[in-house]
């Protein structure tokens, strides 16, 4: 990018010179434009309209956004639930990813290999989470209910998945269960690639225990990995929808398990209110980018 304008290399010439590179990128960029960029632009435009897929969209200004906050009680529940995943469950699972990776890092390679597989398995076979419906089944045949009844802790089975007091707890648990994903693998890899010479240097400089080692050497070196893990975490936290929709039903009892994404699907796919659904999508895009920037600042990146 050193554009020292000695003899004015025209942009067109630069592009022509690199034509092979553009050609290599063309197939991906085409798909990317059609299925990511255009949908985002389309949803920004549609968010300002009333659109039911059959008639052509009619312009309504900011009505959709106003409705979201003033006129849609379920949306407020959905935002609250999604924030629980973004601000509480997300960071917890992020820390869990890091500390489990850190703990298994010292183990002999064979153990590390097995534990990596075990921890990653729920994310890997993501459909298997349906089994939690049987574990937390609301009748006496549910594993949790029958155990609690036999232990005499409860008398009546608890409606884990339909009672609004418990349903979020179960979903958070399952979401944590599935959360050791790509970020976890990145942390394992990152920890293994920390230069061991740094630890020796640290020991000479007076680092006495593992916590100091973690804080002064490992974490700073792993910053880029932590940023990648954070981006993956934001991506999953804000899109939580499959687990609540499967476990709590869709729509869930009293909408207690609604998330922003499931709410968006409710309005878009079930009610064909594409304008309103688009405005929810746009809000999500903006909030996710803001979160990423905030975490970037926190980790001391530009």
């Amino acid at each position: 990018m050193s554009t020292i304008r000695a003899h004015k290399p025209s942009l067109a010439r630069e592009i022509w010179k690199n034509r092979h590179l553009y050609l290599l990128m063309a197939p991906f960029l085409l798909v990317f434009t059609v299925f990511i960029i255009i949908p985002i632009i389309v949803s920004v435009v549609l968010s300002l309209t009333d659109f039911n897929m059959l008639q052509s969209p009619s312009f309504v200004g900011l009505d959709n956004y106003i409705r979201m906050f003033l006129d849609d009680d379920v949306f407020i529940v959905a935002v609250r639930n999604t924030l629980i995943f973004a601000v509480l469950t997300g960071p917890v699972s992020y820390l869990l990813c890091f500390f489990l990776a850190w703990m298994i890092n010292d183990l002999p390679p064979k153990f590390r290999w097995v534990l990596t597989l075990l921890f990653y398995a729920p994310a890997l076979a993501s459909n298997i989470f349906y089994i939690w419906t049987y574990i937390f089944s609301g009748d006496m045949y549910g594993l949790v209910n029958s155990t609690l009844i036999q232990l005499g802790i409860i008398m009546e089975p608890i409606q884990w998945l339909t009672d609004s007091t418990y349903v979020m707890f179960v979903i958070i648990l399952v979401q944590l269960w599935m959360s050791l994903g790509t970020g976890f693998l990145a942390f394992i890899a990152g920890l293994q690639s920390v230069d061991t010479a740094l630890f020796e240097a640290g020991a000479i400089d007076g680092i006495r225990n593992r916590w100091q080692q973690l804080w002064y050497i490992t974490l700073p070196v792993m910053k880029p990995m932590l940023m990648f893990g954070a981006v993956m975490q934001i991506s999953t936290s804000f899109s939580v929808s499959a687990v609540p929709m499967t476990l709590a039903g869709f729509p869930s009892t009293d909408n207690a398990a609604a998330t922003v994404v499931s709410h968006m699907i409710d309005h878009g796919i079930l009610r064909y209110e594409m304008g309103y659904a688009s405005s929810i999508a746009v809000l999500l895009f903006i909030v996710m980018v803001l979160f990423k920037d905030a975490i970037g600042k926190l980790l001391g990146q530009d």
């Binding site: 299925f35 949803s43 981006v231 999953t236 899109s239 878009g268 688009s278 929810i280 999508a281």
Partner: peptide, 11 residues
Amino acid sequence: LLFSSQVTYIP
């Protein structure tokens, strides 16, 4: 990278 398939689902 942020935008999972669920988030871009509607558009």
